[in-house]
Simulated scan of single mutants.
Amino acid sequence: MENKWIIWSEKFEVGYKRVDDQHRELINIINDLHAAAENGDLSIPEVNDKFKIILKRTVDYATYHFATEEKIMKAVHYKFFKEHISKHREFSSKVLEEVIKYTNGENVDMGDFIIYLRDWLFSHIMGEDKAFVDELKIILEKMKAEEKK
């Protein structure tokens, strides 16, 4: 069995399959980043190139995931839509800033960066995403009840 840095746990589930599946994939990507940073010498061009590919995957998948959540929030008129997407934008800006620095050869502590990714994701899932999905479920139940009338 593969040794993973982060193990998915039910406590991270928000209860909406599409979102949970995407959170699992984000954790897989963070695990890949961690493994690449831990197991390879980033000063070796081939290792560095592989790491940059995983960094790009991180940015691309986070963008895709945030777009999914935001589309759902918008469709159901989530009351904290603006606050939630502002958290997404702050995170995206920080990640992009660090990736650009690293890509340009500036000194970035990738260990600290990967820990930041993990901690932010866990905090966001347990806070904002759980609150969003809890409200989403209430909205969907109300819609279902109205259909039966």
Results as ranks from 00 to 15, higher is better:
residue 44 I to G: 01
residue 44 I to P: 03
residue 44 I to E: 10
residue 44 I to M: 03
residue 45 P to I: 06
residue 46 E to H: 08
residue 46 E to I: 05
residue 46 E to D: 14
residue 46 E to S: 14
residue 46 E to W: 02
residue 47 V to R: 00
residue 48 N to T: 05
residue 48 N to K: 12
residue 48 N to C: 09
residue 48 N to M: 04
residue 49 D to L: 10
residue 51 F to D: 02
residue 51 F to H: 12
residue 51 F to E: 07
residue 51 F to N: 02
residue 52 K to P: 03
residue 52 K to G: 01
residue 52 K to R: 00
residue 52 K to Q: 05
residue 52 K to I: 00
residue 53 I to L: 12
residue 53 I to Q: 12
residue 54 I to W: 07
residue 55 L to K: 02
residue 55 L to W: 03
residue 55 L to Q: 10
residue 55 L to T: 01
residue 55 L to M: 11
residue 56 K to A: 04
residue 56 K to R: 07
residue 56 K to F: 01
residue 57 R to T: 13
residue 57 R to K: 15
residue 58 T to D: 07
residue 58 T to P: 00
residue 59 V to A: 08
residue 59 V to K: 13
residue 60 D to P: 04
residue 61 Y to K: 05
residue 61 Y to H: 06
residue 62 A to V: 11
residue 62 A to W: 07
residue 62 A to Y: 13
residue 62 A to K: 10
residue 63 T to Y: 06
residue 63 T to D: 14
residue 63 T to K: 11
residue 64 Y to W: 01
residue 64 Y to D: 08
residue 64 Y to A: 01
residue 65 H to D: 04
residue 65 H to L: 02
residue 65 H to K: 08
residue 65 H to G: 09
residue 66 F to S: 03
residue 66 F to D: 03
residue 66 F to Y: 05
residue 67 A to K: 07
residue 68 T to Q: 02
residue 68 T to E: 14
residue 68 T to N: 08
residue 69 E to A: 11
residue 69 E to N: 07
residue 70 E to Y: 12
residue 70 E to A: 12
residue 70 E to Q: 15
residue 71 K to V: 07
residue 71 K to L: 08
residue 71 K to C: 01
residue 71 K to N: 07
residue 72 I to Y: 00
residue 72 I to Q: 06
residue 73 M to L: 04
residue 73 M to F: 10
residue 73 M to R: 05
residue 73 M to N: 03
residue 74 K to Y: 10
residue 74 K to I: 06
residue 75 A to S: 15
residue 75 A to K: 11
residue 76 V to Q: 00
residue 76 V to D: 06
residue 76 V to R: 06
residue 77 H to E: 14
residue 77 H to T: 12
residue 77 H to M: 06
residue 77 H to R: 13
residue 78 Y to M: 01
residue 78 Y to C: 01
residue 78 Y to R: 04
residue 78 Y to H: 03
residue 78 Y to K: 02
residue 79 K to C: 05
residue 79 K to P: 09
residue 79 K to R: 15
residue 79 K to L: 10
residue 79 K to G: 14
residue 80 F to Q: 15
residue 80 F to M: 15
residue 80 F to C: 14
residue 80 F to Y: 15
residue 80 F to H: 15
residue 80 F to E: 15
residue 81 F to R: 14
residue 81 F to T: 03
residue 81 F to Y: 15
residue 82 K to A: 15
residue 82 K to M: 14
residue 83 E to D: 10
residue 83 E to I: 08
residue 83 E to A: 14
residue 85 I to T: 05
residue 85 I to W: 07
residue 85 I to H: 00
residue 85 I to K: 09
residue 85 I to R: 11
residue 85 I to N: 03
residue 86 S to K: 10
residue 86 S to W: 10
residue 86 S to N: 10
residue 87 K to I: 05
residue 87 K to Y: 05
residue 87 K to W: 01
residue 87 K to T: 04
residue 87 K to G: 04
residue 88 H to K: 06
residue 88 H to C: 12
residue 88 H to I: 09
residue 88 H to G: 05
residue 89 R to N: 15
residue 90 E to H: 11
residue 90 E to P: 00
residue 90 E to R: 11
residue 90 E to Y: 09
